[in-house]
Amino acid sequence: MTGPAIHRLPLNAILGTALVGLLVAAILIGLFWMPYGPIAIDLDHPLAPPSWAHWFGTDQFGRDVLSRAMLGARISTSIALGTVVVAISTGTCVGLITGFLRGWTDRLLMAASDAILAFPGILLALALIAVLGSSRSSIILALSIAYLPSVARVVRSAVLSIREREYIEASRVAGDGTIYIVLRHVLPNALPPVVVLATSLFGWVVLAESALSFLGVGVPPPAPSWGNMLSDARPYMEAANWLSIVPGFCIMGTVLGVNLLGDALRDWLDPRGET
């Protein structure tokens, strides 16, 4: 069905690209130049409101909020990206194996993932970080383990329906082995929900990392992440509201942008949408 042109305009793609583009630009520029040193303390100007000198103001130690938000973007995004890559790749593998092979492997792995799902994600991550110690890689590991089961579940349910399709049987009749069938026919058809999941997972991880940093077990100071910026801002909520508004908007914009882009990506990836 062809709708009027307005319906075909991918608004989500445009807005999503714009927001994610902004994020990427902030990270890239931050690699070469920042208005001030993000951890440079300037005790002459603590809690300065936004001005031409400090666009987003300064915090209680006089550090430039814009610079900190730019570095925070780099740190938060790298953690989110790392977690998404680890959780999606291992989760997809687990989902493919359990969904396609069924039997005891399926029951064992799914029982394990149910056990993980029984913990609230943040609580599990907290416990893991308590064991592993607080560093960026342990945050990535902890969050990956917390989110892996939901990825595995989504992939597994897609695989369960795909494995009963006749083209799988046709591939078997052609003489293809299990690994080839899984990689050639099952995986590509199971991917669209994974792509969407990956983008919303990115959003969750940004939030979860912020929450962990807010609780003081995330990115260790003085390195800024949006989460520990928010955490630092808490005592000054009334006196210096820009301290919470800036990282808050950063988190919101990133999560929204990535989710919108994910929807657009799914529409675009589907070959049936071409005609």
Partner: peptide, 29 residues
């Protein structure tokens, strides 16, 4: 040497595989 033609032409072809690859799949072996 033993092949199968399915009933449902909509579910027997992988939606993400081009026709040429689907038809040539058996020749891989």
């Amino acid at each position: 040497a033993a092949q199968l033609v399915f009933q449902d032409p909509f579910s027997s072809l992988d939606p993400r595989t081009r026709i040429g690859d689907t038809v040539g799949a058996t020749l891989r072996h």
